[in-house]
Design a protein around this nucleic acid. Sequence first.
DNA 1: GTTTAAATTAAACAACTGTTTAATTTTGTA
DNA 2: TACAAAATTAAACAGTTGTTTAATTTAAAC
Lengths: 209, 209
Amino acid sequence: MSNIELNDKKIQILEVAESLFSEKGFEGTSIRDISKEAKINIAMVSYYFGSKERLLEALILHKTTDLKLQLENLLQENIEPLDKVNKLIEIYINRICLNKGIYRVLHFELNNKKREKSLNAFTELKKGNLKSVESIIKQGQDQGVFRKDLNIPLITPTIIGTFFHFHMNRSFFEELLDLKTEEMFNNYIKNNLTKHIQQTIKALLVYEN
Amino acid sequence: MSNIELNDKKIQILEVAESLFSEKGFEGTSIRDISKEAKINIAMVSYYFGSKERLLEALILHKTTDLKLQLENLLQENIEPLDKVNKLIEIYINRICLNKGIYRVLHFELNNKKREKSLNAFTELKKGNLKSVESIIKQGQDQGVFRKDLNIPLITPTIIGTFFHFHMNRSFFEELLDLKTEEMFNNYIKNNLTKHIQQTIKALLVYEN
DNA sequence: GTTTAAATTAAACAACTGTTTAATTTTGTA
DNA sequence: TACAAAATTAAACAGTTGTTTAATTTAAAC
């Protein structure tokens, strides 16, 4: 079997791995945990991916491929700069929501040791993201809608960081905001958190000191 | 020896543990790693703290005690609301910078399993923080300086999340912004990132749609 | 139906995990 | 100095870890 091609079994393993990694961390998840949950033999992980480390690499590659495309499509759209920024925010939030756990792994398991291969894929993704954001912001600046003295590389951290921090403290906010069900939590993200971030970024982009 | 009292040796172990936990995660760090780095016997961790889990609890308690006090002092200061917010941001950033790794552990090792004791201490800290922020914002609203339709619980995530995301992607930003030394990185935080966050929050607080 | 490769399995591997034990050394006190 | 408590140690503990092996089953090709 090819190492690159992802058949059903491989994908099934990746999905279980994502779920468990995000729940218990990379080190906290054993191959036995994965194979138990995925109902496969322990040896299959090594058989398919070679090692636990390379399973992580495959997982990251699998999950970060199409965001790039999504952003490039947004760039081409012919809409107001501010609407484009708002759409960008929605794409980010949707992305992280969909890929729930993987971002946790990305940010926290990747900063450690070697893992250079996985890290490089992630770095390239971030560079591409930044270029898209830069392009969108500059469109707005050229049209005189956005202020010129913006620190563009810090805009993505503001968007993703806010959302991420909210998500990381999920149980705290669930209690604080009385979000009893999964649905209520997701609705709050959709209706309140997204709006807050959009409002924040708008204020940052257009507010003249 | 008392379980609560922290003598030099206990503190030394806690500091090594913080460093290693933040570097390799809680599960990724073994007691043998800690005792090797701290130049003590393996059994000493159990002897002092009882278990690895309770070592984590002690670490969190040890690191989150005085932030509360710091915020309450800020509340009493008689300065402009906006200056107070800016000071709040500086306190947060300074805090996380000083306690480098522990916040990583706090956010990512605590969300998992039981660990209720550690988690409760952290939740209480967050509740106290929120109350402080609320109080400061309301002062500004009463004075007519801040807008009234703010989602106050989402302000802390905006501040800390932004900073945290920047810190978590440290190596990416080091390369992007050409921050070659530790000093340059810290200076960027002090001069640029802090300013960006303060500017963002100010815009959010005072910008009328 | 036979052959060949892929998929799957149970078992074993050595290394590492957190914790406990029991013996020894150090320290403080009377 | 003698005694008791605290600190420190090496060794062993039972489990778990990621990975490999060699045998067996399944699937595909001819």
